[in-house]
């Protein structure tokens, strides 16, 4: 397949099982947290793929595996055609320039002991992109203004800035290496609603300006709907549905997605706009001992006997619309 046609990122059967150990010296394995349990999806060049789901379903872990902050316990992560899932530290170095990250909490994602200018200049320096100090300073100023901050901020410490400003610094740092792919893990969730909109717009502008590709992890469905071309819904370490944004929100096929979207419409459109994921009734089961078969079966309103035994694969039920449910025709 040509480089143009193939997706920038392709995740195949990705698994991240965290071991639970006991004992100080012997370290006996007593179980596993199946944070991500065999997921498949791909992200096309230039698109924004939304990843949504209740707390603890494995969204962050998925992002961390792609960033290779974790070493996946199974599956493949093809980035531009190359499997990065098992790469070693040295090999990953080149990848670090291409894949970057924006975190949720603008307070803890910046080193409080470093000035903003140094935070942004550091990756440029370490990767030897701009060895000349004066040019590096100019580049930092340029990055700050690209992210809507005055270059004066370069001399400030993060604690002297507001949450929204800090988040822009985080974005500037992510852009410093000229990446092509950015994992945004709840990148706007911690911000005030008014500032959220500004940062969402900034992310959109940057995507256009620099031809970026995003994996956008979020709770807020309205933001996802606004920003993402396609959306994947996760439940307990698995992807249960994946489709174009309009298709997913307009015609959800999986009973879990339906329940989430149907949760009591609010008359006030501005409240409705910012509705976040509501848990379906019943507890989310533990990822340590997930239910057999379809993990959603204990809470599923249309479950049948077979759902306890058969794990439904993610299949293309309509063109471009994937769903993991045996009862969807």
């Amino acid at each position: 397949m040509s480089a143009i046609g193939r997706p920038l990122l392709e995740v195949r059967g990705l698994r991240m099982h965290f071991p639970i150990t006991e004992g100080l010296v012997a370290r006996k394995l007593v179980g596993e947290v199946k944070a991500v349990d065999g997921i498949d999806f791909s992200v096309r060049r230039g698109e924004t793929l939304g990843l949504v789901g209740e707390s603890g379903c494995g969204k962050t872990t998925t992002g961390r595996c792609i960033l290779r902050l974790e070493r996946p316990t199974g599956g493949e992560i093809l980035y531009d055609g190359v499997d990065i899932a098992r790469m070693e530290r040295k090999e990953l170095l080149a990848l670090r320039r291409r894949i970057q990250v924006i975190f949720q909490d603008p307070y803890s994602s910046l080193n409080p002991r470093m000035k903003v200018g140094d935070i942004i200049a550091e990756p440029i320096k370490v990767h030897g992109i701009e060895p000349d100090a004066a040019k590096r300073t100019a580049r930092v100023r340029e990055l700050l203004s690209v992210c809507g901050l005055s270059p004066r901020f370069a001399d400030r410490y993060p604690h002297e800035m507001s949450g929204g400003q800090r988040q822009r610094v985080g974005i500037a740092r992510a852009l410093a290496l000229n990446p092509e792919f950015i994992v945004c893990d709840e990148a706007v969730s911690a911000l005030d609603v008014s500032i959220q909109a500004q940062v969402v717009n900034l992310l959109e502008d940057l995507r256009e300006q620099f031809g970026l590709t995003y994996l956008f992890i979020a709770h807020d469905l309205s933001v996802v709907r606004h920003l993402c071309q396609r959306v994947a819904v996760m439940y307990l370490g698995r992807i249960v549905e994946l489709a174009d944004g309009d298709e997913l929100f307009g015609n959800p096929l999986h009973p879990y997605t339906q329940a989430l979207l149907a949760a009591v419409p609010v008359p006030d459109p501005s409240v409705e706009m910012h509705r976040t994921f509501r848990p379906v009734q019943g507890e989310v089961p533990s990822p340590i001992n997930p239910p057999s078969g379809c993990v959603f079966h204990p809470r599923c309103p249309i479950a049948v006997e077979g759902c306890r035994r058969e794990r439904p694969e993610l299949r293309e039920a309509r063109p471009g619309h994937f769903v993991a449910c045996s009862e969807v025709r």
């Binding site: 902050l69 670090r96 970057q100 975190f103 994602s109 370490v126 990767h127 290496l177």
Partner: peptide, 20 residues
Amino acid sequence: IPYVDAARACGYSHSRIILR
């Protein structure tokens, strides 16, 4: 804390992450 993850995601050396 995420800023250490950010440092790792930037591919910094062990000694830089520890010392800086």
